[in-house]
Design a protein around this nucleic acid. Structure first.
Length: 220
DNA sequence: GCGACAG
DNA sequence: ATCTTGTCGC
């Protein structure tokens, strides 16, 4: 798949925040797709000074592997809460561009709009590749919530000040919930639906779990 | 000033 | 994220 060149990645933390302020309003919070048949999980692992990005495309709802790609690049930005995009997306774009099968939906390991400026990693990535994305983080960055029920499928809204910014979803019985939020081009309820539809035997989504293993040097 | 803080 | 073994709980 191809991606837009919306800005430079050689920036300072202050410039990165300015870019987020400028792009945040472009994020679309409603469904912008016909049907979802191919879901891609993306993740980035680190080996010293190298970032290893991996993508795995699965069929939906069967979750059969259709395609995958890996790309490593030098790390150029530190981890700063709120600026994860600038550390991981530079290595993720080449990996996504190398895919032979373009996905209908991308699930990222991080926040979507549940972010200080409304544009976390998943939202930022969605804008760049013009594809619906979901933010699926393993922990909270922002927002208040009440603990969801213990059964798989139980969930509660995640609130920021006075508005809904995401959902806290139990993807397996009695395990820590996932923090799901709109990435780009998808509504929150649809995001929760696809995340649950992508979970099998593990807490994390199957596409992201496989991408995580690939990025860590493992086999699919 | 202090605490919180995706990966 | 990453460094790391066994262990407690469902």
């Amino acid at each position: 798949m191809k991606s837009h060149d919306l800005h430079s990645w050689d920036v300072t933390p202050a410039q990165a925040r300015e870019i987020q302020e400028r792009l945040g309003s472009r994020v679309i919070r409603r469904d912008m797709f016909r049907s979802i048949e191919r879901v891609c999980g993306v993740d980035v692992g680190f080996c010293g000074e190298r970032a290893v990005a991996a993508c795995v495309v699965l069929s939906f709802p069967d979750l059969e592997i259709l395609d995958h790609s890996v790309h490593s690049a030098k790390v150029t930005f530190p981890y700063i809460p709120g600026l994860l995009s600038f550390r991981e997306i530079p290595s993720l774009l080449p990996a996504l561009e190398a895919l032979r099968i373009a996905p209908d939906l991308i699930i990222a390991d991080g926040q979507g709009i549940a972010h200080g400026r409304g544009i976390g990693l998943a939202s930022h990535l969605g804008l760049l590749v013009d594809t619906p994305t979901i933010g699926c983080a393993k922990s909270r960055l922002m927002g208040r919530y009440t603990e969801p029920g213990a059964e798989k499928g139980d969930w509660e809204y995640l609130y920021g000040d006075d508005t809904v910014i995401g959902a806290v979803v139990r993807t397996r019985r009695s395990v820590k919930p996932l923090f799901v939020s709109i990435g780009h081009g998808i509504a929150l309820h649809s995001a929760v639906f696809y995340v649950l539809g992508c979970c099998r035997k593990y807490r994390i989504t199957e596409p992201v779990r496989l991408a995580h293993r690939l990025a860590g040097g493992g086999v699919i």
